[in-house]
Design a binder for these strands. Structure first.
Lengths: 212, 212
DNA sequence: TCAATTTTGTGACTCCTTTCACAAATTTTG
DNA sequence: CAAAATTTGTGAAAGGAGTCACAAAATTGA
């Protein structure tokens, strides 16, 4: 295993493999071949092996991969073997739904604080919907609270016009990872990471495929 | 302009160009060069020209592109110059938030019906949050209602265990486009299109980048 | 024990995407 | 009006990513 730049597509596939392996583990399957895993994830078997080869040798020739073992290794590679503490900024329509979207909570990604320009109004609305409400702070407390609660990822769910200034606040608070749901291009300094979730881009993509 | 397979990345970029051009049009800018547009979208200028070249010649040498003109052309290419009527299936946490997520409504993508296994409970909850509530039907009326309301895209926001059977219903109802928010692999016949929105894959991606 | 079988890990090849570089077309300037 | 400047469109080159094919390693079975 020599150093190489790892394709982003490989990382996305590892995430899929991870999910499939979890299912397999639940079903009590002990061993899996690259062909079986590939089949389940709808990719090429050589692709699975190549993806893994970027990070080491995890299989046994003639046998395959031990499910639990491979899963642990992939989680270690992805960094998904730890709890990630997240902050939500913007508790409007989209924001409050992210709070309510329990799929996050099952995983190792947890929203441990939320911020808004108008927190009191929002607390009521949120706690109404949730068993275990997330505390909503005024936006001007971001730096203080993210430090205190060891927050590493920020979810931007504000209107697009506010996205960049919220990103700036997160940068100032040294929150290095940003997941941006606001349909706006935001920029951050070296060392910070932004991933966008733009529903409209995906819908446009679907529209294109349906029109052709 | 001869026929070629068009990269999916090109389509995604066209969607970004479209957004940028809309902003420019709002600002009253009439003409834009590939370099300016590229700069705004953080891509290479040659990339912009190559992407457009798949579909024709839209610029004027020595001048650039007319903003409105290019925007219209891109929308025509993407199929985003028409209204797309969508159905939401699964009005739980995620689903009701998609209903509330106004960004859809501003655009040419509209949710015109929703479905659930337990519609009455859900209607109350949704209308509470919305000015203009979307009618929620029992899931067994999908075929009838999608036909009646000319629905072309289905949003799956059910628990993962139900995703495939909902997809099957949509296929049966000849809803050719599916946007799948449920973290489950679904398969559809030739001629149908599925796009996945898996938050956990994106988060895993972020986690990886933050860990390395 | 050893041949047959299975399955990984990986070099080589193919295919696809991006970037470069420049001719062609248009506008601007003197 | 002609030379300089601008900017597109595109063939060619470079750079990645995915697939193939096979040697190497392990297991199974006779």
């Amino acid at each position: 295993m020599k150093y190489q730049k790892i394709p982003e597509a490989t990382i996305r596939r590892l995430s899929r493999y991870s999910r499939c392996l979890e299912e397999m583990e639940e079903k009590g399957e002990k061993v899996v071949s690259s062909a079986q895993l590939a089949n389940k994830c709808i990719v090429n078997a050589a692709q699975v092996r190549k993806d893994l080869a970027y990070f080491g040798e995890f299989g046994i020739r003639g046998v395959g991969y031990y499910v639990r073992d491979l899963l642990n290794n992939i989680k270690k590679i992805l960094g998904s073997n730890k709890e990630w503490r997240m902050a939500l900024i913007g508790v409007g329509n989209l924001g409050s739904s992210l709070l309510a979207y329990k799929d996050f909570l099952k995983q190792n990604y947890t929203i441990v604080a939320a911020f808004d320009i108008d927190p009191p109004k929002v607390i009521g609305r949120v706690s109404e919907k949730l068993g275990k409400p997330v505390e909503v702070f005024h936006i001007n407390r971001i730096k203080e609270v993210t430090k205190e609660r060891k927050i590493e990822i920020g979810l931007i769910a504000t209107p697009p016009s506010e996205a960049q200034s919220v990103a700036n606040l997160l940068v100032e608070a040294e929150v290095r990872g940003i997941l941006n749901f606001a349909p706006a291009q935001i920029t951050v300094p070296e060392g910070f990471v932004v991933k966008d979730v733009f529903f409209t881009i995906i819908l446009d993509n679907l529209a294109y495929l349906l029109s052709n």
